[in-house]
Design a protein around this nucleic acid. Structure first.
Length: 748
DNA sequence: GACCTGCTGCGGCTTG
């Protein structure tokens, strides 16, 4: 058998030798064979810095060099989710392509127009582009698409996991389908990823029509040893120190965690995931003070999406070049692909929202041979008082953190949820297809987007409803000619013409924060600020000097005090499997060895309280005259669905991980019986209007153009589970799990 | 009860 190396083109072999590599890594060799010996799509799954980029590109570039295509256009298309990643990858590929005369073209919003114009005149080599810039090519240069991509033999999708489940991923898959229809053949797809929970679902995502033909190349050989510690902290009543007391007030949990981080992370490179931007600012501020108090040079820096590009790049550079010890206190900005080198420790403050994200974060540590990956998880719980609520008593934050670490150790992570309708993104793609062709008929658009493309859950009647909604003269996104041709309406023209059209995700309005002519970053417009307000931002303290409402600019100057702004956000979705594991922990007796003494006591308290609630048998208990606790034992989607059902019956509800706190909100002689009978009728299939309490459903960018009915359908397909509602109620009531008809017959 | 991501064409100017 020919070795993988021998299959590569001469200039590529030369490059491999120049790297001083003794041999190709296992994933690389396997990918070389897969690319040369078949036409199939490929998923390359290997850890960060595991050589995935080379695995895909060494054989692809070799094929281009050895058998140049007669057709016009770019030979290889690469789609990356971040501009910084594209810039990084272009540099690496240029190095490989240097001697071979195969051009490498980075293409995103920061790339100069001259490079783009040149590439459009002579499209060849490797094009590296964002989904948004590719969208722009379809909208602005619809007629050139065939010429630009006629020769394209493969599309490489980087960070596949990051687009699997998202609006952006649907947009990208829609564009890939449209590209294939345009050139009249399939184009090989190669997905690169570090964190894929379910390979079969990932295959279906990559190639919905032929998932079984997708070759999966996985590297498990390079998994580092993992060291984990979970430390518990009790938040005291430090917010209101005793003024009569002579003693120093006890340091807060935040201060104690900051001190622990300071002691253990100092003089090495680390990432601290603090969960929210506000909390990043708080910890960055504390750690800065600790450095200053100890007269040490600064080595702790905040990093999140609202900070200026300049500051973020400064932190990334410090981490990457490794000359000065650097710890970034960050949000998920530092979770994705850009190369920041290896870090010693990954710290996580508070439980994350998904195991997939925890796994991705941990992938930043332990990448050097012989070095372990280190995870330091911090959990904060409040001091228990007689009036403490259920979340505090059951120590749900700690229990979730433990559940997630256990699932991480078992190598599980959340699979994507493929059944969603994605109607906001569908509206976007309808406008884009019309713009691309300068007009199109409804059946053709349906075929492109819903039969060939990714909107396969959208039936013809739903599609027709969407067209009617956006064609409503009051909305004016599209119009129909007498012959049936759909064109952009006045509002649609305006939308598509503006550059803000290309992205499918929503972005909030923000102020820019400026000091002495320098930009610090941005903050949401809904923060109340006036001259004199003090802020913590970018890890420093500021006083607001001027507020320019019209330009959305705030001018600040250094100050001695401040509080961080609120950054907002949406509710996270916790998977059923995570909540199930939380209950296994609550019902268990063993404590994992990685818990410290306080965390152990949290878990014991949680179990003790769980036992006292007598939830082991039933799942519904009365906690007050009109107050109840329901253990749904299910994740956010099922629990939220039940919450909406009870709300529509006029009750007040509070959602927790696997639990629902319910207040009957009306007088009744027998509230317990009342709630039970309500649950029983839902269990027996009563038709419930989940939207009776009018929850806000217009959350995505193009939702505002849709009718209430379509918004309801969209929510039902992605964020709720109406079909599982009766089952959730049956489980809560302890009804046995027979088919509904048989069970209701037994009831009557 | 959270986080992240992206963006064109053109008019008007200066400079070689």
């Amino acid at each position: 058998m020919t070795s993988a190396f021998d299959k590569l083109a001469r200039p590529v072999q030369k490059w491999v030798r120049r790297q001083g590599w003794r041999e190709l890594r296992e994933v690389q060799a396997k990918t070389v064979h897969a690319v040369f010996d078949s036409e199939s799509d490929v998923i390359v799954a290997a850890s960060t810095a595991g050589g995935k980029t080379e695995a895909a590109f060494l054989p692809l570039i070799s094929q281009v060099l050895d058998a140049p295509d007669e057709k016009t256009g770019f030979d290889i298309l690469y789609i990356g989710p971040l501009k910084a990643l594209i810039t990084d990858q272009a540099r690496r590929l240029e190095d490989i392509c240097q001697e071979s005369g195969c051009p490498v073209v980075p293409w995103h919003g920061d790339v100069s127009a001259s490079i783009k114009t040149k590439a459009l005149k002579q499209p060849r080599g490797v094009l590296l582009i964002t989904p948004e810039s590719l969208e722009a090519l379809f909208v602005r240069r619809g007629l050139s698409i065939a010429r630009l991509f006629d020769a394209t033999r493969a599309v490489v999708i980087d960070e596949l996991h990051s687009v699997l489940d998202s609006e952006r991923g649907v947009q990208m898959r829609s564009l890939l389908t449209r590209l294939e229809l345009k050139v009249g053949r399939t184009i090989r797809r190669i997905g690169l990823s570090a964190t894929l929970g379910d390979m079969d679902l990932a295959r279906t995502y990559l190639r919905p029509d032929r998932p079984d033909d997708v070759a999966v190349i996985e590297s498990k050989s390079d998994e580092a040893e993992l060291l984990v510690q979970l430390r518990g902290y009790v938040a005291g009543e430090d917010a209101k120190p005793d003024e009569d007391s002579e003693e120093e007030p006890e340091p807060s949990a935040t201060d104690r965690i900051a001190e622990h981080l300071f002691r253990h992370l100092r003089s090495s490179d680390n990432l601290v995931f603090a969960g929210a931007r506000q909390s990043v600012e708080i910890y960055a501020d504390r750690l800065r003070s600790l450095c200053e108090d100890a007269h040490l040079p600064q080595e702790f820096f905040p990093h999140h999406a609202s900070l200026s590009r300049e500051h973020r790049e400064f932190v990334e550079r410090r981490l990457k070049d490794g000359r000065l010890p650097t710890t970034a206190i960050c949000t998920s900005t530092l979770e994705l692909g850009i190369d920041i080198g290896d870090v010693t420790t990954v710290a996580q403050i508070g439980a994350p929202f998904s195991v997939a994200s925890l796994r991705q974060r941990l992938g930043r540590s332990g990448r050097r041979p012989g070095k372990p990956a280190i995870l330091r998880q911090y959990a904060v719980e409040t001091k228990l008082e007689p009036k403490s609520n259920i979340v505090d008593r059951l120590r749900l934050r700690t229990v979730r953190a433990v559940a997630m670490i256990e699932l991480l150790l078992e190598n599980w992570c959340e699979p994507p949820r493929p059944q969603a309708l994605h109607l906001s993104t569908l509206v976007h793609q309808i406008l884009s297809v019309i713009a691309e062709h300068g007009g199109a008929k409804a059946p053709r658009i349906f075929k492109i987007l819903c039969q060939a493309g990714p909107f396969r859950s959208v039936t013809a009647p739903i599609f027709a409803d969407v067209l009617r909604a956006i064609g409503n003269p009051e909305i004016g996104l599209i119009e129909q000619q007498a012959d049936g041709l759909l064109l952009l309406g006045p509002e649609g023209e305006k939308l598509v013409e503006h550059y803000s059209f290309y992205a499918v995700f929503q972005t909030p309005e923000e102020y820019r924060l400026v000091t002495a002519g320098r930009e610090l970053g941005t903050m949401p417009i809904d923060n109340v600020v006036a001259a004199g307000t003090t802020l913590i931002f970018s890890g420093r303290r500021w006083e607001v000097r001027e507020v320019h409402d019209r330009d959305h600019v705030i001018v600040v100057a250094p100050s001695r005090a401040g509080v961080p702004p609120r950054f907002g956000g949406d509710a996270g979705i916790i998977h059923d499997h995570v909540v199930e594991r939380m209950f296994v922990l609550l019902e268990g007796t063993k404590s994992p060895a990685y818990l410290d003494q306080t965390a152990k006591s949290f878990l014991e308290e949680a179990r003790d309280h769980f036992e006292r609630l007598e939830l082991k048998g039933g799942r519904l208990i009365q906690t007050g005259e009109y107050d109840f606790l329901i253990a749904t034992r299910r994740g956010t989607i099922a629990t939220t669905t039940l919450a909406l059902a009870l709300q529509s019956e006029g009750m007040k509800v509070q959602i927790e991980d696997g639990f629902l706190e319910v207040n009957l909100a009306r007088e009744d002689d027998d509230p317990f019986w009342e709630l039970r009978s309500c649950l029983r009728s839902i269990a027996n299939g009563k038709d419930v209007d989940l939207f009776a309490s009018s929850p806000n459903l217009a959350v995505e960018k193009f939702h505002r153009y849709l009718t209430d009915d379509l918004l309801n359908r969209d929510a039902l397909a992605s964020r709720l589970n109406a079909g599982g509602l009766s089952g959730t109620c049956r489980a809560v009531l302890g009804m046995d799990d027979k088919p509904k008809a048989a069970a209701s017959a037994a009831q009557s």
